[in-house]
Design a protein around this nucleic acid. Sequence first.
DNA 1: CGTCTGATTGAACTGATTCAACGGATGTGG
DNA 2: CCACATCCGTTGAATCAGTTCAATCAGACG
Lengths: 241, 241
Amino acid sequence: MGGLLRYQIEAFASFSQAECELLDAVVRKNVTVARPRRDIVREGDTPRSVDVILDGWACRYKQLRDGRRQIVAFLIPGDVTDADVHLLRKMDHSIGAITRVQYAQIAPVDIETLVNASPQIALALRRHELVNASVQREWTTNVGQRCAIERIAHLCCELFVRLRMVDLTEGQTCDFPLTQYDLADATGLTSVHVNRTLQDLRRQNAIKLIDKKLTIPELDSLMAMCAFNANYLHYDSQTGS
Amino acid sequence: MGGLLRYQIEAFASFSQAECELLDAVVRKNVTVARPRRDIVREGDTPRSVDVILDGWACRYKQLRDGRRQIVAFLIPGDVTDADVHLLRKMDHSIGAITRVQYAQIAPVDIETLVNASPQIALALRRHELVNASVQREWTTNVGQRCAIERIAHLCCELFVRLRMVDLTEGQTCDFPLTQYDLADATGLTSVHVNRTLQDLRRQNAIKLIDKKLTIPELDSLMAMCAFNANYLHYDSQTGS
DNA sequence: CGTCTGATTGAACTGATTCAACGGATGTGG
DNA sequence: CCACATCCGTTGAATCAGTTCAATCAGACG
């Protein structure tokens, strides 16, 4: 934990001491807290800042008129909301806090400063966005092609692996503050069926999920169960230039 | 039709004569043709060029081990594959031709030249990518939340509207070279059910689909049927700076 | 012609939904 | 501190949207 945390984007380029400090300085400028289950940004809003999640979980979601909700991404510590959203006039989705969320609001101007000051930071931000796009494609595939148990297993694998990247796992365990409603909205299932599917996964000893903590006794076999292929997270584009 | 076509990205910033010519020059450098149903890029490949679709339809898709396939996006004339893919080591999905596809391969170096030479082109490319990301979120929502008839109606609306943006519609009609298998893979349904759902849409007079031509007699009512909200295509971020 | 791809149909089946109810935990206001 | 409401997880039973399997048909193509 350098300054406030290990940023997700550090995984996508190697930063010098000076770059880390620059990043920290910009992040520290304006740190905010959102209470659990509150919206951070709403669909239709004019984007004003780029947000970096420092602590807690949030999600991007889209809501249909009749109330149906699709969670299209989870944001965990270190995640950056699109570095250029302000190039579009209106948000096409909302961002909501799952837990209490501490996040930094960065003005577009400051992003520009960062990007101009450091090609490495610019590179890392671009890669982070490309990975976000890749993750979104995988999610489309997840809800489009996989059955219930595969969808949930896949989501567990993804979140565990992403949390591990930012050092937020302990052995085979990580935080997992999602309700079964959240899981339902993320996987395109009903909460009733999520409940039954989780029981199934537990019965198979594939996961433990107690008290908002997820444990995956054998990650490899959970991955095998849902044909999880980590390529889409693009680890291999790390730190090397 | 300026040079080879009206580029999709022209919708996202206004270009001077000089900028259009610059764009044309880079595009003309290396134009290739892919036969129908052939892959243009394969998952696992090292990205070597940015492609601009000049003519025909293509799709991005992901294939699972057991053969299940999810189409995650359709590419129509004017579309640009991610301008920075080369920042990642390996493609996480494939791009396949649906029809015969004419496309330009642009070397990363030439993209850099373009971007450096013209802030407007850079802006347009960034916006195009942000819109692609938005469309991907909408697709996740489409397969996650909507029923069969809504999914297909929504897809028809999206494609019609996007084609209209690049002047590829004639009145209420546009090309629609997709097979029912393609539609199935894009919507997460089986081709059998796509067939029945299309019949249903035709019976309701919501669409005509004959000979690879789609006609939407009343776009408004088709949009109403699936709660289509065009915001996610971000028209409003057009041409104005 | 035969072969192949894509569209169509029928009938049986099933994964997931819907509806409804219940219990435990947590929080809140009087 | 009790009474009440709310959120979240759980269960059962009936239902249904979409799948599966299998067969047929039309058009395109060498």
